[in-house]
Nucleic acid binder design. Structure first.
Length: 462
RNA sequence: UCCCCUGUAGCUCAGUCGGUAGAGCGGGUGACUGUUAAUCACUAGGUCGGCAGUUCGAGUCUGUCCGGGGGAGCCA
């Protein structure tokens, strides 16, 4: 007799085979002659219907424990269901309550809860339909990401989580220290970091890109997939203080190759989810974001629109839309502009390239016009920027000048500059916010609902 | 960090003009039924987010603090 998971069971042919199933009760309906348990074990959205013939199974001692949330082991025979709602059901022989769940206090009801409430009970929310589906899709996306890169010869690289370089240049960092906070050692009124654990100031990484470039300029194509930390006081449905990021980096690759790979990669991981998470995706399409399936299927088939920043500005200027922020060449695109382009103008993912150099990072390769850099952002409806990438500046003199232009400490970038001094090569890469990808695919509105335990400004429960 | 909204039963919410609190769902009890977020009847359940103020009287008005949500900025 085998322990099977419900995902396997519901696709089996019912021929009275005996089996044991473990799971949590979603609902229990009883009567004198027959009882029904809707059992879920997290392997899939569907519940397995357990039928208990009370003439065959004595429930006297356990019936009061057969409540929503209780964990049970049921042994029985798999039979065809007489009703169309489910193909098979388990005709129980024995029912054992492993862990009761007092119904007076168990917070999950059979009906729908608000996501806000579920966030307060993050230890129980994976037992709901929506969250279990989110977690399965998240898992499938994660697998697809590795699969895409592995199939294409990219090496999976682990870049450091603790970094002593204060120069990753992507927002506020969390400091890491073992200094006693109630008695910080000072030297001339400033903190003496030489007494700290690493002998210098250290922080949590905000990006693995610079280290990724090191590895790409030795190994060819690499990718990272790990946690990233930003200490911004962001309080939106699209930001977390701790999130996961995918960052491929390709040697001997320019901005066009970068875009090609990013587009192919996005389509690949979306296809993977469409093919492997059919039931969960149908659920999101029905209950969370109607029309999502069609949008995703369309994206996989379509070519992403590619425009330059200059064209994007022209498009915004000629529109009749009233924007809060004035549109003119040189501004950074605001959320409202990005949404307008993806949702109203093109209704498709849009890749915008060649941004003004003033609004982009120092490491992006300058175009010959002297005004723009080879950056590319992929914007998607509702989420906005999902991928940000660029061809990297590979000319030592230009890069050094850019650092000085932006008043960055050139000495601290010595190793980054040496990559350009010895065997420099054109290279490019991009970063994908993993949670934003999960949001986009599932249609979930709040990023805190696509990660098991969200960390955000002022919030680190569980 | 800024702007807006919000906080009433376990959950989702209503509560008019300031006069001591209501529904649906969930829970409990019972009935009924191859049931499907079952159905029906009965029932319990409240420091109206905290503190201070105005008032004869505050869920309702004012101040303040705390929590939650949406938007902006920052970004992925």
């Amino acid at each position: 007799m085998k322990n099977l998971r419900i995902k396997q069971i519901i696709s089996m042919k019912a021929d009275n085979q005996e089996m044991t199933v473990h799971g949590w009760i979603r609902s229990f309906r009883d009567s004198k002659a027959v009882c029904f348990i809707a059992l879920n074990d997290g392997s899939c959205l569907s519940n397995l219907q357990i039928v208990i013939d009370r003439d065959k199974v004595d429930l006297t001692n356990i019936i009061s424990d057969l409540t929503t949330g209780a964990s049970v082991a049921v042994t029985g025979q798999l039979v065809a269901s007489p009703k169309p709602e489910q193909p098979v059901e388990l005709d129980a022989q024995t029912v054992q309550v492993l862990g009761p769940s007092p119904s007076e206090t168990y917070p999950l009801q059979k009906k729908r809860h608000s996501f806000e409430f579920l966030r307060e009970i993050a230890h129980l929310r994976p037992r709901t339909n929506t969250f279990s589906a989110v977690m399965r899709v998240r898992n499938a996306l994660s697998f697809a990401i590795h699969h895409y890169f592995q199939e294409h010869g990219f090496l999976y690289i682990q870049t450091p989580i603790i970094t002593a370089s204060d120069c990753e240049g992507a927002g506020e960092m969390f400091q890491v220290t073992t200094l006693p906070l109630d008695n910080i050692p000072k030297e001339n009124n400033s903190i003496d970091f030489s007494k700290d654990f690493f002998g210098k100031k250290a922080s949590l990484t905000v990006s693995g890109q610079l280290e990724g470039e090191i590895m790409a300029l030795a190994l060819g194509n690499i990718y990272t997939f790990g946690p990233t930390f930003r200490a911004e006081h962001s309080n939106t449905s699209r930001h977390l203080a701790e999130f996961w990021m995918v960052e491929p980096e390709m040697a001997f690759c320019d901005i066009n190759g970068d875009m090609d790979i990013a587009e192919e990669f996005l389509k690949y991981i979306i296809s993977h989810v469409l093919e492997n998470c059919e039931e969960d995706m149908a659920f999101f399409d029905k209950w969370v974001d109607p029309g999502k399936l069609e949008v995703l299927q369309q994206i996989v088939k379509s070519s992403f629109t590619r425009i330059t920043y200059t064209q994007a500005i022209e498009e915004l200027l000629k529109s009749k839309e009233k924007f809060e922020f004035k549109v003119e060449w040189g501004i950074d695109l605001q959320s409202e502009h990005e949404k307008f382009l993806t949702e109203k103008v093109y209704n498709n993912p849009v890749i915008i390239t060649d941004y003004p150099k003033q609004i982009k990072a120092f490491y992006m390769k300058q175009n010959d016009d002297g005004k723009t850099v080879r950056a590319m952002d992929i914007l998607v409806p509702r989420i906005g920027e999902i991928i940000g990438g660029s061809e990297r500046e590979d000319r030592l003199d230009v890069l050094t000048a850019r650092l000085k232009d932006q008043n960055l400490p050139v000495e601290e970038y010595w190793w980054y500059l040496e990559l350009r001094k010895y065997g420099s090569a054109p290279h490019a890469g991009f970063g994908l916010g993993f949670e934003r990808m999960v949001q986009f695919v599932t249609g979930m509105q709040n990023i805190r609902d696509v990660i098991p335990f969200p960390r955000a400004y002022g919030s680190a429960e569980f």
